[in-house]
């Protein structure tokens, strides 16, 4: 049972709280615990005493409903892309995407694979790319710090881009997912 309504285009009319909101959002990033590709293995150390991501206010959430960030941690197969779309659309606005590894940037070493995508930004709006194969936890933290900076400056607006250009993203997604059976929007 789900609602099939296409979301409204985002409107910006609450300027008063914006600064405070952005500050709070940047300092309280909750990640959906979801891993793709090789990179998921590099996310685990972030919890540990050595890297300690909690000091930045970053925490893992087991459900997309409660999180703000979706990490695409490496190559993304077409089959997984479908799940990623579902998860991404279930996250409540504002939401951000952090893409790890060269695979998400240009396909990496899987550039000519028959079943992985090459440029992630064509399918879902990426806010920050972290390059490397595989980026080490330090690099991931660096990516987070860049994301926090972008949020504070009001520049991490991938979620707005997605809603405004939903037809464009849908067209690209449908092109690559052959057995398309998703609803118009996954609430």
């Amino acid at each position: 049972m789900y609602c099939n309504k296409i979301p409204d285009k985002p409107v910006d009319n609450e300027k008063i709280w914006k600064k405070l909101d952005d500050l709070a959002r940047a300092n309280s990033l909750w990640i959906t615990a979801y891993g793709t590709g090789c990179g998921a293995i590099e996310l685990r150390p972030l919890h540990t005493s050595r890297f300690d991501m909690e000091r930045f206010g970053i925490a893992m959430r087991p459900t997309p409903r409660q999180s703000d960030v979706l990490i695409i941690s490496g190559y993304l197969s077409v089959k997984t892309l479908k799940r990623v779309i579902r998860v991404y659309e279930q996250i409540q606005d504002p939401k951000y995407i952090l893409a790890l590894g060269s695979c998400t940037i240009d396909g990496g070493m899987y550039f000519d694979s028959y079943n992985t995508i090459n440029i992630l930004d064509r399918y879902i709006p990426v806010d920050v790319y972290v390059n490397g194969c595989m980026p080490r936890p330090e690099a991931v933290i660096d990516g987070f710090i860049l994301l926090m900076k972008k949020i504070k400056e009001g520049k991490a607006v991938g979620w707005k881009r997605y809603k405004e250009n939903l037809e464009y993203y849908r067209k690209n997604q449908r092109e690559i997912i052959r057995n398309w059976d998703l609803p118009d929007y996954n609430w």
């Binding site: 405070l20 909101d21 709070a24 959002r25 300092n27 309280s28 005493s49 300690d52 909690e54 000091r55 206010g57 703000d68």
Partner: peptide, 15 residues
């Protein structure tokens, strides 16, 4: 670990 700020819960709540 160093751990979060003392005010982290307020930030989370506002967000």
């Amino acid at each position: 670990r160093i751990g979060p700020r003392l005010t982290q819960n307020f930030i989370d709540l506002w967000k």
